[in-house]
Design a protein around this nucleic acid. Structure first.
Lengths: 250, 250
DNA sequence: AGCCGATCTGAGCGGAACTTGAGGATCACG
DNA sequence: CGTGATCCTCAAGTTCCGCTCAGATCGGCT
């Protein structure tokens, strides 16, 4: 059974490869998110049954790697990370990860969880992963049609014009901008932007969405999806075809 | 989405039912392992998408309940328990559980994990089949004869042409497209697309089917099965028997 | 403490989505 | 070929949901 291990720490990786190898896994070790996405491009070899993804990657955000994997493939993903906070857990799982384990973990449990997701993940390998370069954008600062979102500085600019946002407004925008076009359900938004398990009683979400729209001065950027949630309109509103997942060819 | 909650503590169960209900789940509460196994016998109703299994049951060992469930069904199981020791975790996962969460847990994380295993879960029609490796629900966009259904983006395109759908229309199409060729009974459609058991009084379903056909501009794609329900015509209209997924029983 | 911005709540409005009902078309079956 | 049941379409209601505004509450800062 082939595994893809995404981990930048050589020592940790070597230990894992050894243990997993003894348990009958054939492990490919990727040292960066870029390498991982490369490795997932179908190449005629046996596809990976599970991806072990460390969040503390050097070149790009581990969450981003996860959502990119998800954009093009149904391969099961287990996040293995030192980040134990609830926010990160929920975020990772909502991004499409199948499991989330925090370091330090028990090796036996990791093995059991790998087997658990592998059982489920007999996913047909018909879905192709887009070449990593075909989906540009979204590196350090998120950028989409003139809007630049700097997560570290928590600043947003539209066409070079700086737009001051409050905390909630920024978190909201950053969440939606993570995957433009994807519809985020209300409950999901609440669990990621607000403290988890909290359900908005009143018109809280609408108000923040409203002020976000006003400040950005881009009506139509944030679109409401009735009865479900909200989403960001991606690059071209009209010809929004053939976006992320490359058409699967047999 | 129907859940089966197996929990003997009434207070805990009541709280969970309330919260899960507010998040759009239809929860059946079983107070014992025996009751849980009874509830899982296929009865023509919509099958359970996920089972939340407490290990601290009175009548029999929770582990045994889990393996019995596994023996007869591929329904995803999440163990929710106070037993945090490694031994139990590994045992539970190896018995076929899809996830294992220890009390006290964060409600947001529980919800995220429920969604995670439900995403992965077997197609509803396949639940009655004893085979452990049931057909997994397809992950990426569903595609069938030029129709692409992107569940994440809630968008549908026909031959590249984007078709805006309302909530009910989209849910309806997504349900039928889950297993092209399989006939979905009216009651089943109602319980899946409309929350809670509610029988459509008027011509509600027909109207939505109608507008769906109109918008897709593909008459004949959605076929009415007199006295039963509706289905999607699979790839080749001729050999409409033995489609890819599991066969509907009865 | 007092100020000020950020966040939350409630009411009202408008429009989209949903439901209902009636009449016509179609199908299964005798 | 007739008949009843079922399904489809059209055109109303009716409900639901998101938007906005205004006021209340919270929380950080001086």
């Amino acid at each position: 059974m082939r595994l893809l291990l995404v981990e930048d720490d050589e020592r940790v990786a070597a230990a894992l490869v050894a243990v997993l190898g003894r348990h009958g896994f054939q492990v490919r070790h990727a040292r960066s998110g870029h390498e991982a996405l490369d490795a997932l491009v179908p190449d005629g070899n046996e596809p990976y049954r599970v991806v072990l993804l460390d969040l503390g990657l050097p070149d790009r955000d581990g969450f981003e790697v996860c959502s990119r994997i998800r954009a093009g493939s149904g391969v099961p993903v287990i996040m293995v990370t030192a980040r134990a906070d609830i926010r990160s857990r929920i975020h990772g799982l909502n991004l499409g990860a199948d499991d989330y384990i925090t370091k330090p973990y028990d090796m036996g449990e990791l093995l059991a969880r790998i087997h658990a997701v592998a059982r489920r993940g007999a996913a047909p390998a018909a879905v192709a992963v887009p070449a990593p370069d075909t989906v540009p954008q979204q590196r350090g600062p998120l950028e989409s049609r003139g809007i630049v979102i700097d997560r570290e500085r928590r600043r947003v600019s539209v066409d070079g014009r700086d737009v001051p946002l409050t905390r909630k407004e920024f978190d909201l925008l950053a969440l939606l901008a993570q995957s433009p076009g994807v519809v985020y359900r209300r409950e999901q938004i609440f669990s990621e932007v607000w403290r988890s398990g909290w359900e908005g009683n009143g018109r809280t979400l609408e108000v923040h969405i409203g002020s976000l729209r006003t400040k950005l001065a881009l009506p139509g950027l944030v679109e409401a999806v009735r009865g479900v949630g909200y989403r960001l309109i991606p690059e071209c509103p009209a010809a929004a075809d053939t976006p992320p997942p490359a058409r699967a060819e047999r």
